[in-house]
Nucleic acid binder design. Structure first.
Lengths: 164, 164
DNA sequence: TTCAACAAGTTGCCACTACAACTATTCCCG
DNA sequence: CGGGAATAGTTGTAGTGGCAACTTGTTGAA
């Protein structure tokens, strides 16, 4: 069955190699930078950013997980640590007794605000400022359908609700 | 000093979001697929592929690490497990007594050959076949300079010695 | 020749993620 | 309105990566 899949030609190889390599290096670079500058991971940064944008700085676990494209167990543990550090709070008061609301604390906001300029600068330095407008558009046009295909179930695009 | 870095405009946001998301989802997808089909991670797959291409199916640790863009500790542990599973062998016989040569075994080759068609098919399905020639070229042209920037020290591009 | 600096790999320890099992709550259907 | 199915979230365990410390072997300069 696993019949012969055509080998990659040079152009295909180039594109594929570049994409895989980027996918391995970029997350590591973001983590290292944010960790050094603000003591948080990129994942935590995205969580805190999402909370900051949210109404009342509050979201339920499930929605956060969808936004950052995470599994529940992973998110649960990360939130646990953020609570320990006082960057977010858990609030049980909801009509549905199962849901837990998570709110950004003022300390959390401080950490986020402190992390933001450096992070933005890194993103510009690594990516954005190295591409012209046409390239930015091409990149978005190319990757967006791929993301849709890659995303297990829900397309996390919702977080495109980012005007921040 | 951490002066105001200009916020991202919509186009910049789109491109950035698509790139980060891809970078998070793609490695997970590759790992899941390879693990299910051949019992190896994408990282192990790349190591085995590299060895298969290498002269005498042998490489030294440092060169492997450079090829797959890994730290030595990480590679050392992974090779340890591959040795346990009989997919590679360590050979100490070198002029420089410090270097360890790693060779692909026939079992390792078998696993690799078994994994390859499915992996190729996934790569085509997820990425390559979803892009036309112009897009492939644009993607490569855009990402290659970014990789160069992202890569800590040595540009792993050497593994572009892939004709295989 | 000898000893300090350096290079190649490995190991230990800690943090993080995945997957599965579990608890608690709500829903829904007879 | 009673109870199984489904949903929200947490916990336990094992596997994986990072960083620093360590071991072994090489180099080079006095």
């Amino acid at each position: 069955m696993a019949m012969s899949v055509p080998r990659m030609d040079p152009l295909e190889s180039r594109a594929w190699l570049a994409l895989v390599t980027t996918s391995e290096l970029l997350p590591a670079a973001l983590d290292a930078h944010l960790r050094a500058e603000a003591g948080i991971t990129h994942f935590e940064f995205m969580v805190l950013s999402g909370l900051k944008r949210a109404k009342a700085n509050t979201m339920r676990m499930t929605d956060i997980a969808a936004m950052v494209d995470s599994t529940m167990p992973r998110l649960s543990k990360v939130i646990g640590k953020l609570v320990e550090r006082g960057l977010v709070e858990r609030e049980g008061g909801a009509s549905d007794g199962r849901v837990i609301n998570v709110r950004l604390t003022s300390d959390g906001r401080k950490v986020l605000v402190r992390a933001l300029p450096g992070h933005l600068a890194q993103v510009r330095d690594l990516i954005i400022d190295r591409l012209d407008r046409d390239q930015l558009e091409a990149l978005a046009d190319i990757l967006e359908p791929l993301v849709e295909r890659l995303d297990p179930q829900r397309n996390m695009g919702q977080l495109a609700a980012s005007r921040s």
